[in-house]
Design a protein around this nucleic acid. Structure first.
Ligand SMILES: NC(=O)c1ccc[n+]([C@@H]2O[C@H](COP(=O)([O-])OP(=O)(O)OC[C@H]3O[C@@H](n4cnc5c(N)ncnc54)[C@H](O)[C@@H]3O)[C@@H](O)[C@H]2O)c1
Ligand SMILES: NC(=O)c1ccc[n+]([C@@H]2O[C@H](COP(=O)([O-])OP(=O)(O)OC[C@H]3O[C@@H](n4cnc5c(N)ncnc54)[C@H](O)[C@@H]3O)[C@@H](O)[C@H]2O)c1
Lengths: 212, 212
DNA sequence: CAGCTTATGTTAATCTTATAACAAGGCTTG
DNA sequence: CAAGCCTTGTTATAAGATTAACATAAGCTG
């Protein structure tokens, strides 16, 4: 009984699913077979109520008076998140950040495969990162025609991010993972990750703390 | 009339302040002198109501029938965020991500100064990034004794992140900017930025989209 | 300079999210 | 194997956030 369609899942719940996935994976790796909502919530830094509320939006995974079977729940959440099928990702803009992302080894655990890398800097083109060679961004439309890509990661300077996204959308990419600090014009789902904003938020909280 | 103490600012509002700051800075750079909540909200992808609601938690910055003076509002928000004073940051864990962050040029615009870099890998120690030399992590306690540091950026592997944070907290660091996917035990304000979680969220949204 | 236009500050209503409470149901233990 | 003990699923309550509405006040125009 997974994710009965028709019911809308709350955005807050969605943003917590990856956290649940991570902790469950850890428990499973440790060989722990069952866990209560209280115990799991404690580790995560959440509340039992919220955890149960979240999970029950997708179905009934627990057992009365017993808790949740770790392996089964992990598998269910993996399926909800779409981790059961492999997704292909490309990265546009192989600067500092693009390099770091391309070098990250743990995408495999999430069933994500690096399919291509693009830049415009002649110095960078040809370089091999994580077994993938950087191509010129001009090659992208042709590449997208020949390959079905799921995720387009944008780590270009903000001025050219929109252009890259437009190309990707036309090329059939399904979602955008964006690090450039701009609002993107697209119908695709976009996941923003702006480091600068996050740092400013921290700054604010540090400042407020000192006042007291 | 800035930020009358006693009134609690909503977390959601706080997370939008950096966005306002970014867009106002852009307007100011373009020499635009005034803007209405409708116009600004339109650019940001928000609503006029929300924008006014947010700003009015801190004071009265606008003028009836006129809008907001860009330069003045920018200056007010800068002050609210604490950008008027310079903050010192250190980075622990100079791997892929640490390198990218250290190489980012725009921290200066936010009045943040890179004070030191730490790692344990002998290959990396001694390397100079953005005019700062990487030191051994063992030097950190001594460095923190001699220097007042505001922000500690954690980009180590998750297993050693807690240790680094403990050292930083003891050393008088005021806030943690964390990229390691672990819950940190500390009384300091922590700003999490987990790339993996963000990617999984995107994956979920891509999956849901295909269903329809 | 008076009336009109415009966009604010603020209050009210709606919608969303989180917390709390509890009845129902399955394990466990003696 | 039956009584008790847990912990779930679910419903109810409270808190928080967003959207909408509107009276108010400042600029602008003729
Ligand atoms: N590195 C950070 O810590 C950091 C922090 C905050 C925000 N960001 C944002 O992340 C993005 C990437 O940051 P970065 O530090 O890696 O910048 P960077 O300048 O190091 O990298 C940008 C790369 O994009 C390439 N590029 C330029 N135009 C292109 C195009 N049309 N097509 C493809 N590639 C193109 C450049 O050649 C360069 O290699 C930027 O938008 C930046 O604002 C980065
Ligand atoms: N790069 C990515 O795209 C990405 C994605 C998701 C999460 N993350 C997380 O960000 C963090 C950093 O990622 P990365 O890709 O840069 O990893 P990395 O392995 O490239 O870098 C880690 C660095 O930390 C150093 N280190 C190890 N122990 C240390 C210690 N005790 N003190 C100081 N330094 C120490 C290592 O020598 C290495 O240079 C990790 O926690 C990772 O899980 C990274």
């Amino acid at each position: 009984m997974l994710d009965e369609s028709g019911s809308k899942i709350s955005p807050r719940t969605i943003s917590r699913l990856p956290v649940y996935w991570r902790y469950l994976k850890e428990l499973d790796d440790f060989g722990i077979e069952r866990i209560s909502s209280r115990e799991l919530a404690g580790r995560i830094g959440s509340t039992p109520s919220q955890l149960r509320q979240d999970l029950n939006q997708f179905g009934h995974f627990g057992q009365h008076g017993y808790g949740y079977p770790v392996e089964e729940l992990l598998s269910s959440i993996s399926q909800i998140l779409g981790l059961n099928r492999t997704r292909k990702m490309i990265i546009v803009g192989m600067g500092n950040l693009g390099m770091a992302i391309a070098s990250y080894e743990n995408f495999g655990r999430r069933n994500i495969k690096l399919a291509a890398l693009f830049d415009v800097d002649p110095e960078r083109i040809g370089t091999v990162v994580s077994d993938v060679q950087i191509q010129h961004a001009d090659e992208m439309p042709k590449f997208l025609e020949e390959n079905q890509i799921d995720i387009g990661c944008v780590s270009t300077p903000p001025e050219v991010a929109q252009e890259a996204v437009t190309t990707m959308e036309h090329g059939g990419v399904l979602g955008i993972w964006n690090f450039a600090p701009v609002k993107l014009q697209t119908k695709l789902p976009v996941e923003h990750l702006h480091l600068g904003d996050s740092l400013l938020e921290l700054l604010y909280r540090i400042g407020r703390r000192e006042d007291k």
